[in-house]
């Protein structure tokens, strides 16, 4: 059992988890289930990128994984803010409000 085959197996397990998250994303009755699925999918993508970094031996891929983790978080928070306040702008934005 070489390292490469272990990485492959673990990669398949992560892909299976992502498939489950996608399934929940499609099935999810409420919109929050879908946001949860997106959040989980993003976190697993970070793991996949780190796995690819290990497989190819290039540690500079880890910067991509780091960046993806941060962007994933910001995306989830933005979508949540949109759903909670109806708009990404100022929560009580009246018409003509330049703020």
């Amino acid at each position: 059992m070489s390292i490469a085959s272990v990485l492959l197996l673990v990669g398949l397990a992560v892909l299976a988890t992502m498939a489950m998250a996608l399934a929940r994303g499609l099935l999810g009755p409420t919109v929050y289930d879908r946001i949860l699925a997106v959040n989980m999918f993003g976190t697993k993508t970070v793991l996949l990128i780190a796995l690819l970094a290990a497989r190819s031996g290039r540690s500079d891929y880890l910067d991509i994984a780091l960046l993806y983790a941060l962007i994933n978080f910001i995306g989830v928070i933005a979508v949540l803010k949109y759903f909670e306040y109806g708009s990404l702008g100022h929560p009580h934005a009246e018409e003509g409000d330049e703020g």
Partner: peptide, 17 residues
């Protein structure tokens, strides 16, 4: 550690489903 992490991820996926 990798195998444990992957298994736990699967458990989480099943839980979410």
């Amino acid at each position: 550690l990798l195998v444990l992490g992957a298994l736990l991820g699967l458990v989480g996926g099943i839980g979410v489903l």
